[in-house]
Design a protein around this nucleic acid. Structure first.
Length: 258
DNA sequence: ATGGCTGGTGAAACCAGA
């Protein structure tokens, strides 16, 4: 089965491209981020017509996450991370789909750093680490997929030295990512492509896609029990090259069926 | 260091993204 994550950068503007990508690649599960649409403006009917059931947490103008299931209806487990009732951003949603727990996340960008937005990113990360730890303790197969807004290593950015002070690459956020791997989570793309240059995002500015000046910031972390089931992982670069593309490309894993 | 794109909002000398 194929599980994908895709920051669509506006599901209203991206709907044609999203439907075309679903039709071409037919992921069994897709986590979407940056819906940029209020709850009532999610294109539920169009996705149903395409064969996908969905749960989503919308928000006007910014953020927004969804989980799609081909030929089924995801069972929602939670929306929002535990630990801060005052946090109203729509950035996390979790579902049970078959034997899998799927967490879809849109981690805060955090720029400019330092500053309040960066502080929010670090506090969100702290809560996410706690929740990831709780999930790990459940000893069930889990996939945490989404836009992490974290560049894990120098290999994951076209010119590392220009990004040292950026909120996506600062030591604190890279350390948090390392701590997640330390919990036992498996970075699926990096595991399948060690040492390889792989990007998932290219800024619209300055012909960054044409120059392949990108970042690897969209990740699928697998619980350790899924490691033997991991068959493939990759990025659908063709979607970034299409008409009116998102600035992110869909990223996916292929797991052996149970 | 910037913000030359892009989307959403609402009418901006706007904001946010990464």
């Amino acid at each position: 089965m194929r599980i994908a994550t895709f920051n669509v950068n506006g599901i209203t503007a991206r709907l044609p491209a999203l439907l075309a990508w679903l039709d071409q690649t037919k992921p069994d599960i897709a986590c979407l981020q940056e819906l940029k649409a209020p709850q009532e403006r999610f294109p539920k009917a169009a996705l149903e017509d395409a064969g996908y059931g969905a749960i989503w947490h919308g928000q006007s103008a910014w953020n927004g996450v969804a989980i799609l299931q081909r030929g089924g209806q995801p069972v929602e487990r939670r929306r929002g991370l535990p630990g801060d009732p005052a946090d109203l951003h729509s950035r996390y949603i979790e579902a049970q789909i078959g034997d899998l727990v799927i967490g879809g996340l849109y981690l805060p960008n955090g720029n400019p750093a330092p500053g309040p937005k960066y502080d929010y990113k670090l506090s969100w990360l702290k809560r996410f680490e706690g929740h990831a730890c709780d999930l790990m303790a459940e000893k069930r197969p889990v996939v945490l997929a989404g836009d992490y807004n974290i560049i894990p290593t120098d290999l994951d950015v076209y010119v590392p030295d220009r990004w040292r002070d950026d909120a996506l690459f600062r030591p604190e956020v890279r350390a948090a990512y390392e701590r997640l791997l330390g919990q036992g989570w498996i970075d699926a793309l990096r595991t399948m492509h060690p040492g390889e240059t792989i990007y998932t995002f290219w800024d619209y500015l300055r012909r960054r896609f044409e120059r392949n000046a990108g970042l690897r910031i969209d990740h699928l972390l697998l619980s350790p029990d899924l490691a033997p089931r991991l068959k493939a992982a990759d990025v659908d670069r063709f979607a970034r090259a299409g008409e009116r593309p998102s600035d992110h490309a869909p990223t996916w894993v292929e797991l052996e069926d149970r």
